[in-house]
Nucleic acid binder design. Sequence first.
DNA 1: CAAGAACTTGCGTGTCACGCACTATTTGCG
DNA 2: CGCAAATAGTGCGTGACACGCAAGTTCTTG
Lengths: 193, 193
Amino acid sequence: MSDLRARNRQATREAITTAALRLAVEQGPGGLALVRVNDIASAAGVSPRTYNNYFSSREEAICGGQADQSRRAGDALRARPAGEPLDVAVTEAMVGLFTDPEPDRAGLRMIMLTPELEGEALRAFAVGEASLAEAIAERGGETGLCPEVTAAAVVAAIRVAGRHWLTPAANQPFADVIRRALGCLFSPGRTSR
Amino acid sequence: MSDLRARNRQATREAITTAALRLAVEQGPGGLALVRVNDIASAAGVSPRTYNNYFSSREEAICGGQADQSRRAGDALRARPAGEPLDVAVTEAMVGLFTDPEPDRAGLRMIMLTPELEGEALRAFAVGEASLAEAIAERGGETGLCPEVTAAAVVAAIRVAGRHWLTPAANQPFADVIRRALGCLFSPGRTSR
DNA sequence: CAAGAACTTGCGTGTCACGCACTATTTGCG
DNA sequence: CGCAAATAGTGCGTGACACGCAAGTTCTTG
């Protein structure tokens, strides 16, 4: 148990994020102000002061889970076979990362479609850009601007895909929407419907 | 007089954003907490309560100018000649929009490189996505996913370009960096140095 | 097993966002 | 030309919040 401490820490962090997101979903996008810090803390089994040691705002706590997921983007790409072309490697890595457990619709809807959460939601997705850019740079041998642009564009495309997946009209698996969105990015000529 | 009222409103809004950004730059990225609401309001010549009618957080006020600029992305694209290919039209439109007055380095550095401002900064850039996507859809005739993905990717590339332009090492005009970043997006094969 | 690091918690404080009620200015209409 | 309705600015009061500080508690390490 080299790090019993680190695991406890991660556990409480997750307890807080899941509690925060659950309470937010219960109140719906309109009543975000009704989700009190005390409620989140007690729901997570922790003192309000401890909650505040982990997150410095309700918004950050609610979107913390999304941030943790995005942060693994680089590792997801690194796990792809080395011979694979970059575009399919990225696509499959992102599909795996974001649909391995198909995300909870209500949770994602809360995070992405609540105006007061918009900033933190963008931040949560953006934390993946750095690690993804690094992984892309390793794979392509390139360095500097292009990998970062590609990484940021990929993350942006996934955001758009998420928005579309939440649309009541389109009732397709999230994986398909992500593939279509990244297709728009990687093969601009072909208009995939 | 097309609405004296609307113009006054825009004037006070700009007064608040410029005051907020100026004070923030004065304190530097570290001392954001020292920028009090009272200071911003009095520097803008309005009451603190009025400041709060326009913005609901310091961060929003500081990044308000950036948001206003990004919001014009759609119009900037529409102003390009109709025959132009999409990629060059977008590139030139964005170069014009973001470098017509070369941005203030200190201000952009404050907005983009202050951790507490990251969420609002992303939000400020993201407000341009909707209008840009609409303009792209009009031009290309397409609708749905692809224009939105392209718009989001373009905005993301500009963000990365801004980050690179702020790097002390690279001392190039902002326009060049934007062109290189969008080049990474539109012609992925060519590795522009 | 003891010293010290890391984590949690309670308390106190300064700041903030916002609802409400009131005043002043602008607009549109008879 | 004035009068009513709409809109913006302001002061006050309140509830919530983020965080510094200083204990107390649990884990790590030599």
